[in-house]
């Protein structure tokens, strides 16, 4: 197992390297540069900017310099759009905000989704099941673009219970976390239900019933554990996405998170920020998927990695 983990960690290096290479050339092949403006400036002035950020160098050299900076000092370069800050500054400032919001949203999603799914599975084809299905589908089909402003309208403006937006106190975190968690909660609820139904009909559950084991023990120790494999698989990438920030929720609630920065940096052609955030996201994805794979072995001891 240790060797498996070590191998996977070593594997992440070439994956991240290829990822950086593809992203680098992808972003450079899109028309429009970081210093194009609606008011066209003389080309000498643009040349000064390109010289300053070494964009006048051949692409391969830019890439080499960029990766050398990362390898040597973990330096992800300057931001072109935010002229007084580096990519490291930006990640340091904004990742914790996104991570807090994401952790909270994930907690809401898991805390409501999984129990709802279990109940629905146990009471299959009853009104409880239908109600939870309906709720889940509703949660899934309202885009956060509409849910966010709606929650703000009700809870902040009409009921005066919570602040409208921005990121200051714990109260400010509630509405965005619910908005972000709602859709994922629905997904987890439905997935848990489906997976539970599948597992409940397995032979070993029947055996457990036959042995006369107590109901909670069967449900939790035998059924739920095995039903979690698809749920955890989906949660892996979800974790990475949600922790590194999601654009719409951060945008609607004016939250200084990394998700907003990533989308803005693409619009700005802020190359180092695009690279930095993409690599960070890639890192989280690899880590999350590794955790998922490790957890398989824990949930189902029959799964082994050579």
């Amino acid at each position: 197992m240790y060797r498996f983990i070590l191998r996977r960690i070593l594997w992440s290096i070439p994956v991240l390297f290829i990822l950086s290479l593809i992203t680098f050339f992808l972003m450079h092949s899109i028309p429009g540069g970081p210093f194009d403006t609606e008011k066209q400036v003389p080309k000498e002035i643009k040349a000064n900017l390109e010289r300053k950020y070494r964009l006048d160098q051949p692409l391969w050299r830019q890439y080499m310099e960029y990766s050398w900076g990362i390898v040597r000092h973990l330096d992800f370069g300057p931001s072109y759009a935010s002229r007084s800050r580096t990519v490291n500054d930006i990640i340091k400032d904004h990742l914790p905000v996104s991570a807090q919001l994401g952790a909270l949203a994930l907690a809401i999603a898991i805390g409501t989704g999984v129990p709802l799914g279990i109940i629905a599975a146990l009471k299959q084809n009853t009104y409880i099941d239908y109600a939870s299905t309906f709720l889940a589908i509703l949660g899934r089909s309202i885009p956060s673009l509409a849910l966010g402003p709606f929650l703000i309208w009700i809870f902040a403006l009409k009921l005066h219970l919570l602040p409208v937006a921005t990121w200051e106190t714990p109260q400010h975190m509630i509405l965005p976390a619910i908005t972000l968690g709602a859709a994922e909660s629905a997904l987890l609820a439905r997935l848990t239900r489906a997976s539970m139904l599948q597992v409940l009909r397995e032979d070993y559950i029947r055996t457990a019933w036959a042995k006369g084991l107590p109901r909670p023990s069967i449900m939790l120790r035998h059924a739920l554990k095995n039903a979690l494999i698809p749920v955890i698989t989906v949660m892996g990438p979800l974790f990475a996405v949600i922790i590194t920030g999601t654009f719409i929720v951060e945008y609607i609630f004016a939250i200084p998170g990394l998700g907003r920065y990533f989308i803005t940096s693409i619009g700005n052609r802020d190359y180092p920020v695009i690279m930095g955030t993409s690599l960070l996201f890639g890192f989280f994805i690899i880590a999350a998927n590794l955790l998922v794979d490790i957890s398989y072995a824990f949930i189902d001891p029959r799964i082994r990695y050579q």
């Binding site: 290829i18 972003m27 989308i263 994805i285």
Partner: peptide, 10 residues
């Protein structure tokens, strides 16, 4: 993993 990491928007 690699495909996940690619910025689809680009």
């Amino acid at each position: 993993d690699l495909m996940y990491g690619l910025p689809t928007l680009l």
